[in-house]
Design a protein around this nucleic acid. Structure first.
Length: 469
RNA sequence: GGUAAUAUAGCCAAGUGGUAAGGCAACGGUCUGCAAAACCGUCAUCGCCGGUUCGACUCCGGUUAUUACCUCCA
């Protein structure tokens, strides 16, 4: 029984999919006008973990995410760089794909793009007009927010105050177009001749922000979807508006479970493109060669909580991951010297930790508690590996279990295939001989030499063990 | 101003009405030719003030601080 915190109800609810065994989820992807930063990555990773856990639990997950590839910021960026909008959009959409690959984020089942669904958007908007939920004004089309019952409840905002706030921001010209300051654009008239645009019943224009997600969620999933995810900042206005549009359009509930991840902070301030205090994944990957550390770092905090990003927390995550890898390797080394059979008692203990892991993840994806269970298994692995005799089936079971559970966090490789030179192989062999001969001076010297070449040698009761630094 | 969230050891971070998981760091042991790795042990009374309760860190009220959202933003 999996419980999911639903932003709409502000409660953890028992999860039940519409179709048994299958899940339709939509996660808001980036507006592609810049490289993604760690905050954006957190969102992708948080929902990747959600997806992987559902898959671990046996669900078939249909995961749709989008690129919003037409938008004010893209147009502005194109202006600044003197290129057309699609050049910008394609560049950063590709960068997103490149940057998320090393982070081991599974590709969406469908990766949709706003510009690919313009005809669907136009149909959608026309329907809103036909139903009286939207109106055209000088080429723009606005949604009558107050006509939609319950507008604003997702973000728990007071309608009157929202209206006041909105009014304060609008200029006179906008006020004359909008019936109500709180109304939002579902279609925007083209502002300049050279701007990207599509023909529509309301003249040349482009989609407003929000509408693309409503359209794509419906087109690639269904009228009612199980889960809709995104950063907490999207609760308002983005998801609020999506919900209003979609439900006005279909007359059905749009989303059963709204999930929102917390922010990544830097110095206790949110990391954001507008504040300029962001570290892009693109840059980070250039200077940091162990992207799995990011995945572990994010797993140490529950997805709804804010997380502070710093070199300290990153280092701690790196060390923690090393501990897991070392334990895994230590046990893996015993595979060579394991006896046939299994240790039934230990397997019972392992199963207990699996249960702890699952209980934690069932509770709204409590990765910190789940991770604690993994660490218990690592300690078990190290302790077991220290035994005089170990049984091959149990060693393998423990190895498989650690990898299986970490796989839910997207950490799917713990022992990168070591690559050593023939010379290093010979040195390792020579060192074994030296130790047999009790020539410690020579063996220490060889160990030093290997270490300089990045091969770390350790001596155990079962002989010489080595790994790459 | 409105609406929320958060406040737990040096750091990161879970958690329950009955005396605080896990990781990092630190300290002390064990093992080891040495080293490394590992294992064992030690290390907090939960922002502040009240209240409810036999008992609260866990509920209620207040207070302080921090952060976020209130149409750029994951």
């Amino acid at each position: 029984m999996i419980k999911v915190y639903n932003t709409l109800t502000r409660e953890k609810e028992i999860f039940k999919s519409i179709i048994p065994g299958k899940i339709n989820m939509y996660v808001c992807g980036p507006t592609v006008y810049n490289y993604i930063h760690i905050g954006n990555a957190r969102s992708s990773i948080a929902f990747d973990v959600v997806r992987r856990y559902f898959e671990y639990r046996g669900y078939q997950v249909n995961y749709v995410s989008n690129f919003t590839d037409v938008d004010d910021k893209i147009i502005q960026r194109a202006r600044e760089e003197g290129v057309d909008e699609m050049t910008i959009a394609n560049k950063y959409a590709n960068a997103f794909i490149e940057d998320t690959l090393p982070l081991n984020i599974q590709p969406a089942t469908v990766r949709a793009r706003a510009t690919e669904v313009i005809p669907d958007i136009i149909v959608f908007v026309q329907d809103l007009i036909d139903k009286g939920y939207a109106y055209e004004a000088k080429g723009d089309v606005y949604f009558r927010a107050k006509k939609f019952k319950g507008y604003g409840i997702l973000a728990h905002q007071d309608l009157n105050e929202m209206t006041e706030n909105a009014a304060g921001r609008l200029d006179d010209e906008e006020m004359t177009r909008k019936e109500d300051p709180i109304d939002f654009a579902v279609w925007k008239a083209t502002q300049a001749e050279d701007e990207i645009s599509w023909e529509s019943p309301w003249g040349n224009g482009r989609p407003g922000w929000h509408i693309e997600c409503s359209v794509m969620a419906q087109k690639y999933l269904s009228n009612t979807i199980d889960i809709h995810g995104g950063g907490i900042d999207l609760a308002f206005p983005h998801h609020t508006n999506e919900m209003a549009q979609s439900e006005a359009h279909t007359g059905q509930k749009f989303v059963n479970y709204w999930m929102h991840n917390g922010f990544v902070n830097v110095n206790n301030e949110k990391m954001s493109k507008s504040l300029g205090n962001f570290t892009t994944i693109h840059d980070m990957l250039k200077h940091y060669d162990d992207p799995m550390t990011i995945r572990l770092l994010l797993a140490t905090t529950q997805y709804r909580r804010p997380i502070n990003y710093s070199s300290d927390t990153l280092t701690q995550a790196r060390v923690a991951l090393d501990r897991i890898r070392t334990g895994y390797r230590n046990l893996l080394f015993r595979l060579n010297t394991a006896a046939v059979g299994k240790d039934a008692d230990l397997e019972v203990t392992i199963k207990k930790q699996i249960a702890v892991f699952e209980m934690a993840m069932d509770d709204d994806f409590n990765t910190p508690n789940a991770l604690a269970a993994v660490f218990e298994l690592v300690t078990l692995a190290n302790t077991y590996a220290d035994n005089k005799t170990v049984k091959v089936e149990t060693v393998q079971y423990l190895l498989d279990t650690i990898l299986l559970l970490l796989g839910v966090f997207g950490i799917t490789e713990l022992n990168d295939k070591p690559q050593i030179t023939d010379a290093q192989k010979q040195l390792l062999a020579a060192r074994v001989s030296a130790r047999v001969a009790h020539d410690f001076e020579l063996s220490d010297q060889i160990r030093q030499q290997l270490s300089e070449g990045g091969v770390i040698v350790e001596d155990t009761a079962q002989g010489q063990r080595w790994h790459q630094a």
